[in-house]
Write a protein that binds this DNA or RNA. Structure first.
Lengths: 134, 134
DNA sequence: CGGTATCCCGGTGGATACTG
DNA sequence: CAGTATCCACCGGGATACCG
């Protein structure tokens, strides 16, 4: 039988979708920016260049592993530039690239929306969680 | 000795940070909206009410588990309203709430930024990945 | 048709220790 | 000070099967 089963068709559709999703610009951006620390980092760097250690202090709570990792991702995407000054001990500065700076307003819009509506959301959650179980 | 060790201090700081992060509106919003499907879902619902099955078709690739799960989260946050019409078989419609609709422009801004700059990002990645290993 | 319940895998991200 | 290397716990999310 040449007819595909429902399973086969779904798997096929999913493959197609995967390709589509992988190409989706928004998802690709979210993969980097949607991370736990990326947003905070871009925000912190919006004020100007910062050293690794300064960021650790400002972001408070981030492990140096995640800090380095997130900075690498942002650097890879061309949002942040890493500058090494060879001295002892070595000095490393991070700053937003022009591309990175164009992202700041977008993130701030998201932040503004969040701060404006967080109460409504929290209220909605309370109501939802208190909803009759039947 | 009443003096705290460095470990203790760091753990303490992290606890404080945790409380702070947990309260951060942006992070709370991202927890819901940053999900793999939430954005696409809000976008799909921006055009009007849709049934569960319709969404499965439109979003193409989402499992019904994730669809239901994501819709629940959005409903819990008051962004989506779920309407059950008791008939056989039962009919369920989803639509954006007024609050949910205010999120649409913000998401679109993010989408626009992504589509505008995705090429630059992709280029940056290529350059970064091709960078001299030394 | 819409939803729930399980099981399971992989990625994210935290702790810790070590290098230059 | 900045970064790398492990190890590991947790959770998002996919597959599958079953309910109303």
């Amino acid at each position: 039988m040449t007819t595909r089963t429902a399973e086969q068709r779904r798997t096929e559709e999913r493959t197609v979708y995967d390709a589509f999703m992988a190409a989706c610009p928004t998802r690709q951006v979210m993969a980097t920016v949607g991370g736990k620390w990326a947003g905070l980092l871009v925000n912190a760097l919006a004020a100007g260049p910062r050293r690794h250690g300064e960021l650790r202090a400002v972001i408070a709570g981030v492990s140096q592993k995640m800090l380095t990792q997130t900075l690498r991702e942002l650097e890879r995407d061309g949002l942040v530039e890493r500058t090494v000054t060879p001295q002892v001990p070595v000095r490393v500065d991070y700053e937003l690239t022009p591309l990175g700076r164009t992202l700041v307003p977008v993130l701030r819009a998201l932040k503004d929306w969040s701060e404006t509506h967080i109460e409504e959301i929290l209220d909605a959650r309370s109501r939802f969680d208190a909803a009759p179980p039947g």
